[in-house]
Design a protein around this nucleic acid. Sequence first.
DNA 1: GAACTAATTTGAACCAGTTCAATTTTATAA
DNA 2: TTATAAAATTGAACTGGTTCAAATTAGTTC
Lengths: 342, 342
Amino acid sequence: MAVTIRDVAKRANVSLGTVSRYLNGYKLKETNRIRVEQAIQELGFRENFIAKGLKNNRSMAIGVVLASLTDLFATSIVTAAERILADENYSIIVCDFESNQQKLEHKLRFLKDRSIDGLILFPGNCTSSDALREYLNDKIPVVIVNDDMPDINTDKVTVDNSNASFRAIEYLIHQNHRDIAIINGDQNTYTGRERYKGYLEALTTYQVQPREDYITFGHFSNSGGYEAAKKLLALPNPPTAIYTTNYYMTFGAIIAINEAKIRIPDDVSFIGFDHFDLSDVINPPLTIVEQPRERLGELAARTVLRRIKGDYEDFPLRLSINTKMIMKDSVRRLQTAKDKRQ
Amino acid sequence: MAVTIRDVAKRANVSLGTVSRYLNGYKLKETNRIRVEQAIQELGFRENFIAKGLKNNRSMAIGVVLASLTDLFATSIVTAAERILADENYSIIVCDFESNQQKLEHKLRFLKDRSIDGLILFPGNCTSSDALREYLNDKIPVVIVNDDMPDINTDKVTVDNSNASFRAIEYLIHQNHRDIAIINGDQNTYTGRERYKGYLEALTTYQVQPREDYITFGHFSNSGGYEAAKKLLALPNPPTAIYTTNYYMTFGAIIAINEAKIRIPDDVSFIGFDHFDLSDVINPPLTIVEQPRERLGELAARTVLRRIKGDYEDFPLRLSINTKMIMKDSVRRLQTAKDKRQ
DNA sequence: GAACTAATTTGAACCAGTTCAATTTTATAA
DNA sequence: TTATAAAATTGAACTGGTTCAAATTAGTTC
């Protein structure tokens, strides 16, 4: 059996209470401190998180629940969150619910049974959950990432999805584009709806009539973007600009555009979503909406940690971090009649 | 405080030992069974995994350690593994070590302190680890995925990396290609080396002289593939076929090829690696080497579970699952002089 | 219904920590 | 040196399960 705090106490000739106090950062008499440290060293003592958790009713684990472990956006947020959490000695227990409401419930209960101290949730296309309400009842901190869940009253961190679209489209309009197509993702997700909303708002604001054939929908996936782009490019009056609303769709669309031998930005201007390595490396580098994934992950982690510590100031937090437009070379400024006259 | 088995025992008018036996699947007298079940129901009892773990010295958690949470290959394996593990009531604690040896050691200790019952490790470019040896000493099951780690004697599951390359190149040769380029990944990874090895072996077997300018190296990333492909296409004598050794590289290369307005398979034949949605959707659908990611994940999970249960038959397992070539339309059969004569 | 066996049940002790009232030690003042 | 206050230490009791020797109950046979 492993070395316990009792063994350390015996070796150091102090009581187990003293060792416990040492481990929890209380001050000991100098001589005792040294003896305890030495005993720990000599015996190779490591504290047992499970025993600790039993009495403290804490597991030092945070649940992370996401629709898919293969979603780059979510996993890069989780990566950032994990850095912060591990620093504070919290582990993350990850569950994938495969975009399935029932599985979500199951996983939430699964994690609750494991006494997780907090939860970071990416609900994706799930908008409600009974199990989640149990968390709130039991005062287990929950942070929801990039989603709304209107009837769940807890901390939420997102990006300014609709505003991001608005600014992207506004920018295209300022470059004199009017035939602006959007490749939308799933409208049963919060981000899908918001990004679409911003598009419509921008058009309305600048009195551009939305055209149905320029508004496409698909999965938030490579193939979703590819198919949508193909459809747009095949239109009798193809758009002068295409805006994609997700990373995967962006690259699906780029492939379709390249295949069609259509040049960016000469034949079509393009604004993509999310900043990953390929965005810069392809030719021309894409103008994109960059999501602050790292900050989002950090914020989510810091928020759960604060709640765990009992700091409920500013609860419920509703923070939307600004995206940033990165201007590269995929948008062409169109000439207007007026431009030409000059 | 939560409901404990003592509360259940009191309510059901049996001893706590009886409740415990019920929970662990032992047979009770019918009347007692019913009363216990009723009490559990009425009180809403849920067992406490932490308390359970303390006595059993088990955490019901499996550690998953990978270089990056944003690597699609690893995360899709983890997804499959999680399905199996969660079914058996095991949770997975995920740690990302950012391809950093020191962090790897740290994370392995971090997980060990949390008494994980088993470990699934994707070592990536790390070839050795002291902390890992501690696992073996302490008889904590470790399964290594898609890597070698020659001095770590434990279960290993991989795909037939070198053979996969061999067959891909062999196929190209049978289609009369001789100018076959390879886009290699990091040679400090096992997969990187093996896939390169298979390429060389195939050329040697068929007495094709390897050409240095057709052998490129890069990161296992979109940009790695993109840059390498650009270089290849810019050669004075570009290859007639390109073989990429990883999913990200495949799509980086495809983008470069499309940008260069080079047609697949007319101008260049192409074999990619790994089967994801885009492989089929682009035009033409790519001939690729498909890795059995799902089976790999399941096998890894099943193997840890077996070891945890004490089944050490066939230890250490060294299993290499076969990849499969999926023939689509990205490879053209070249005409030989002989073909033409006929 | 006594004697015996088999099947169940009981509950104290245990897992490795934390906690806190009681005790001991140390420091300070008179 | 002693009295007193402050600081540090002690260890039994506790967390919520499991385990197993001992006790009880049920079932069988004569």
